[in-house]
């Protein structure tokens, strides 16, 4: 475990040091590639602004992910209960998934974002995040062991007992795997939505990056990028930890 933590830390630190020294040695203009120390300064100088933007982006991402989680589970349960319902609605879910989110985002902003941009941002990020949860949860609910099914039938289990003692735990590994993917997708969806929304009220990190880019403040762009990467990492590792804890029985 220590090795697993130490190795990436050493490689990242080495890269940062190499970056700092190279920029100085080759005299690279700061609007092209600012030194890591400059990025850190930009982060500290604008900490309140970045903190507020981080909170905004994180709020949108988590809201979209929660919406994706509940809607994905709910739809997957409906699919498992009715083949007709699945046949009717699964293609629609696929259409939502395969249509590029950047192309859909302006429409969503017009429909629901004029008076409340955050609502549009959440919907766009939800669109990006919900499909992996739906498809994995559906697969999980269908993967129940036939013999265990027979066993529950033999013991005269009720539908509720069958659901919470057999179906739900069977689907859990599928759901947890999808959360690691959807967590990242919710963040990507939020960033895309903020970019498309532009100055129309969005206050998140993507908007800060866009704003800094327009002013050629590359160090601020990197600072925003760094925070986005940290959020993405935290989401991924939080779900990995949850998976590690909840699926202990597999080891």
């Amino acid at each position: 475990m220590r090795k697993a933590l130490a190795l990436p830390l050493v490689s990242i630190l080495s890269l940062i040091i190499l970056w700092e020294l190279s920029v100085d040695y080759f005299d690279v203009p700061k609007f092209l590639l600012p030194a890591p120390s400059l990025i850190l300064c930009a982060l500290i100088d604008n900490q309140e602004l970045f903190l507020q933007s981080t909170i905004n982006t994180l709020t949108i991402t988590i809201s979209a992910l929660l919406a994706a989680l509940f809607s994905g589970i709910f739809l997957a349960l409906c699919f498992s209960l009715s083949r007709t319902f699945e046949a009717a609605f699964y293609p629609l879910a696929v259409i939502l998934q395969v249509t590029p989110i950047v192309a859909v985002a302006p429409l969503v902003l017009i429909w629901v974002g004029i008076d409340n941009v955050n609502r549009a941002l959440i919907i766009i990020a939800w669109l990006a995040a919900f499909f992996p949860i739906l498809s994995n949860m559906s697969a999980g609910l269908k993967s129940v062991d036939r013999t265990l099914n027979d066993l529950f039938k033999l013991y005269g289990a009720s539908n509720w007992q069958r659901f919470h003692l057999l179906l739900w735990p069977t689907a859990m590994p599928y759901l947890l795997a999808s959360l690691k993917v959807s967590g990242g997708l919710a963040l990507i969806g939020t960033v895309v939505a903020e970019f498309v929304a532009g100055s129309g009220g969005a206050q998140g990190l993507a908007w800060r990056i866009l704003e800094a880019g327009n002013r050629l403040q590359t160090e601020k762009m990197f600072a925003g990028l760094l925070l986005l990467a940290i959020i993405g990492m935290i989401i991924f590792y939080a779900f990995s930890l949850l998976e590690y804890r909840l699926l202990k029985y597999r080891r």
Partner: peptide, 24 residues
């Protein structure tokens, strides 16, 4: 059954107790 058909997420004790947990 031919396979042990145990709940992978339940301990040995809870697997053995399953008929009781399900009211059988």
């Amino acid at each position: 059954f031919q396979e042990p058909a145990l709940l992978p997420w339940a301990s040995v004790y809870h697997n053995i107790k399953l008929p009781v947990s399900l009211g059988a």
